[in-house]
Simulated scan of single mutants.
Amino acid sequence: MQLFGIDTPARRAAFLAQIGHESGRLRYVRELWGPTPAQARYEGRADLGNTQPGDGFRYRGRGLIQTTGRANYAGTRDGLRRVAPGAPDFEAEPEALEQPRWAAMSAAWFWQSRGLNTLADAGDFFRISARINGINRATGEPNGMEDRRKLWAGAKAALGVA
């Protein structure tokens, strides 16, 4: 967290809540696969860079924030190599994002690269959640928002954030 500026109690609380939700309380570093209807739609999604048959499954969510899609695996590789030159080629070896070091570093890099420290400083947990997992059209809220808020409350209490 320190390497990516997640260095205040407010930032840490928001980060821990988000990775707690995304990873099923730090149990999963690979997306559970059904496939669900949403997962089936990963296949062929140009916005994710999934251009080859099988990319949807191959580049399913991995890491503590669940990096998803060929393009995002390549972006994570490029971003992490700026601070960790020995980072694997996640596009060529997607399973490497399941290793503890890379699962954690990829989440922290994603956080910094999406400007989430600034949102955490402002206490804008809604926008943090939306940037990580989008908005559910049915509810108008980011997916899993109730759970994310509970985890955030717990993390703030543990870290002494008002």
Rank of each mutant, 00 (worst) to 15 (best):
Y42M: 13
F57C: 10
M105R: 05
S106R: 02
Q99G: 06
A38M: 12
P37Y: 13
A92N: 05
G75H: 06
N72Q: 09
L26H: 02
G34T: 14
E43W: 12
P37L: 14
I65T: 14
R82D: 06
I65W: 02
R82S: 06
P88E: 02
A92D: 09
G49Q: 03
D89R: 12
G86L: 06
E93A: 12
W33C: 04
D89P: 10
A40Q: 15
G69C: 08
P100E: 12
D78V: 13
Q99I: 08
G86T: 13
R101F: 14
R62P: 01
D55L: 08
R70Y: 09
D78F: 10
P85W: 13
T36A: 05
A71R: 14
Y73Q: 08
F90P: 03
G34S: 14
G34Q: 14
L97W: 02
P88C: 04
G69Q: 07
P94G: 09
F57M: 15
S23A: 06
A108L: 03
L64I: 04
E91K: 08
R27E: 11
Y42T: 12
E98F: 04
E95C: 00
Y28C: 00
P100F: 09
G44F: 05
G61R: 08
G44Q: 08
V29I: 01
Q39K: 12
Y73L: 12
A103T: 02
E93R: 13
S23K: 00
Q52F: 01
A108T: 11
A104C: 05
G24T: 12
F90W: 07
A40S: 15
E91H: 03
V29M: 00
D89F: 09
R30M: 02
A84R: 13
G56N: 08
D89H: 13
R27S: 07
G61T: 09
A87V: 09
G61Y: 08
A96L: 03
R27K: 14
S106N: 03
L48R: 05
P94R: 09
G69I: 08
R77V: 01
A108E: 02
G79L: 11
W102R: 00
P37Q: 15
G79W: 04
A107V: 00
L26Y: 08
T51K: 05
G69D: 04
R77P: 01
Q66E: 10
R27V: 02
A96I: 08
T76W: 06
S23G: 03
A71L: 15
L32M: 13
E91F: 07
Y42W: 12
R62M: 05
E31Q: 00
G54P: 04
R81L: 07
G61A: 10
N72V: 11
F57G: 13
P100A: 14
A84I: 14
P94S: 10
I65R: 02
R101A: 13
T68Q: 08
R58T: 15
T76H: 09
T67L: 13
P94C: 08
D78K: 07
L97F: 01
R101N: 00
P94I: 07
D55G: 07
